[in-house]
Design a protein around this nucleic acid. Structure first.
Lengths: 346, 346
DNA sequence: CATTCAGTTGACAACGTTGTCCAGGCCCTA
DNA sequence: TAGGGCCTGGACAACGTTGTCAACTGAATG
């Protein structure tokens, strides 16, 4: 084999191009293009010759070149916070389904809750010329997206609103959900209720905290800074926070957990305590019904969030030009036992 | 209604190109390219003029065109079975991390366990000219990938081996893991053990079944077709299967569940039974330690699978040319209670 | 028979980027 | 001052595809 590979680069390993197919089939370049794209105006005879050449050479159209020519990539970008977080799985899946229905591919990545990384990722996607973006924002300033949006990149934010720009957003009613969850605890007799949440710079975290305060106020209950813990959701921190609330001078009898990761840790801590403590968590968990007691949660429908965002995105891509809208989906309280534990009395 | 496209097209909404930047900065096209790519040979003065023009126009390099020219897309494709399955979250995440470290983007999609959809997705990714592919195969014939691999698309299979082609594969020791899990039950006195698995055409499912039989045979125990259930992992089917095994003429005293979805359903069924039944599940679950009894599992390290596969892929992309290899990662038995329940005796 | 017409087909120029190569301008040395 | 080298900058072609448009075929029409 005299493979004189003096070539400078591999270039996709030298894949056949339409030109090669055309040469082999003895037709013009454009005719191959027509066959590949199912355009009309090719005799069955010619078409077959081209198909055979395609088959023989193992030709596959180069979509990069196509994109360059056509201006649409038929792909959308999804930036979420953590691909490994079970909460985002169904959301991711739902977005993919909608994209698939529209013939688009999904490019995704996670920001790891780091605004700089979010921006880096988003801009990389823009450089790829994705047709649209779905972003679960980590940062709170998205003005860097202005030139992109102006250039026509449809953008929808999910789970948290965009910062300092006007854009579509789809989110759950964090405020209402937390308020309902805390009210549920109050309805079961609790007066001293702890709240453990994420960093308040995260919109959902702030909203849930607001819901907590609203519910307490609705019921005319006093609050205590010692009952509220905000910050990282790292297990050790959450563990310490819960312990402090339970062992403090005015111990709480119930806890509201601000998201799924917090809830998991709180459940672990409470499992190790003698005295029963009521618990309601934001976000559902797969095995929540199998715990003893079952876990009472305020559930959001992640798949529905994803679907709504993707629908919105594709409507924009299809030309919808109305003002950016905020879509808020309701949450659902699921009582399974842990939230119905009465306050402990000595 | 014949829609006549009067306007040419949106073309990314007319984004500025290097040509525009060059015109504005009063320099040549190639000079802009040099600045954008940080190539040497540009005076600080010129560079600044170019930077200002870029800033002013909101220019962002078009990676599609770049890809076309350079022949590398700096993106890899990941095809998995279900984006929403919590098992794949950490795997997905691990692959993304490695890709990120190599400056590559991740395009992904799920096959929904449908071979046709897998092929469609894989070929779409190839048309995008991803540099490499990581596939969790749904089908069992991957010869359709031969031209792609020959053309230089690095491909690594994860979780299950490729069908009818020779390719890298990274998987867990399903056989060994299942054998160990079942042996664990036997060591705790069980003699009649049920096995509930997925369709045996799925490699992991078949291997786990093999592990089950091997453990039984190792211990000199007889098996019974009524103790083995294979097929869809739909909850109703699993529920019926478990019930049949527990209420049959030779009732099992322990169950081995072939994957996480099966396990969840089995736990639900057993929770509703009076008589205690031992259970070991393949795959860990987030709240497994919080169940009563805690769930004994054979755990695989999904993140490690993903990392190993991605490492392998990028080694190939960096030019490694050795023969396709099979990497098998060990599983780990985690005893938490459910697998240590002794056989029920009347 | 000349003419039109519909149906096929291919030549060619884009798309936006990067690699190659050459032209100037500068500084240095002899 | 001439010759050499280095540095900077730009003209141009290519990458693989698709849109445009004109040329060709054969048949149908006058």
């Amino acid at each position: 084999m005299a493979e004189t590979e003096s070539r400078p680069e591999l270039r996709y390993g030298n894949r056949p191009t339409m030109k090669d197919v055309a040469a082999r089939a003895g037709v013009g370049l454009k005719t191959v293009s027509r066959v590949v794209n199912g355009e009309p105006g090719v005799t069955p005879d010619t078409e077959q010759r081209v198909q055979e050449a395609i088959e023989a050479l193992g030709f596959r159209r180069n979509d990069s070149a196509r994109v360059l020519r056509k201006g649409r990539t038929a792909s959308i970008g999804l930036v979420l916070e953590d691909l490994a977080d079970p909460f985002y799985g169904p959301l991711n899946r739902a977005v993919e389904e909608v994209a698939r229905a529209h013939g688009a591919l999904l490019i995704n990545g996670s920001s790891a809750e780091d605004p700089a990384r979010e921006q880096e990722l988003v801009l990389a996607l823009c450089a790829r010329r994705v047709d649209g973006l779905i972003v679960i924002p980590a940062g709170d300033d998205h003005r860097y997206l202005e030139p992109e949006i102006a250039a026509g990149v449809a953008t929808v934010f999910v789970d948290r609103p965009a910062g300092r720009i006007d854009a579509d957003v789809v989110l759950s009613d964090s405020f209402g959900g937390a308020r309902e969850g805390v009210a549920h605890l109050i309805a079961h007799g609790h007066r001293r209720i702890g709240f453990i949440g994420d960093q308040p710079r995260i919109h959902t975290a702030a909203e849930r905290l607001r819901g907590y305060y609203a519910a307490m106020e609705d019921a005319g209950l006093a609050t205590d800074d010692a009952w509220v813990s905000l910050g990282s959701t790292a297990p050790e921190r959450v563990r310490d926070a819960v312990t402090a609330m339970l062992d403090g001078p005015r111990p709480v009898t119930a806890v509201f957990a601000g998201n799924n990761r917090v809830t998991v840790t709180v459940v672990r801590v409470l499992a190790g305590r003698e005295r029963p403590v009521a618990l309601v968590g934001f976000d559902d968990l797969e095995l929540a019904d199998l715990l003893r007691p079952g876990l009472t949660v305020v559930a959001q429908d992640a798949a529905r969030l994803g679907r709504a965002a993707a629908d919105r995105l594709f409507r924009r891509l299809d030309g919808a030009n109305d003002a950016p809208a905020r879509t808020e989906l309701p949450t659902r309280l699921i009582a399974r036992g842990s939230g119905e534990i009465p306050p402990w009395t000595p």
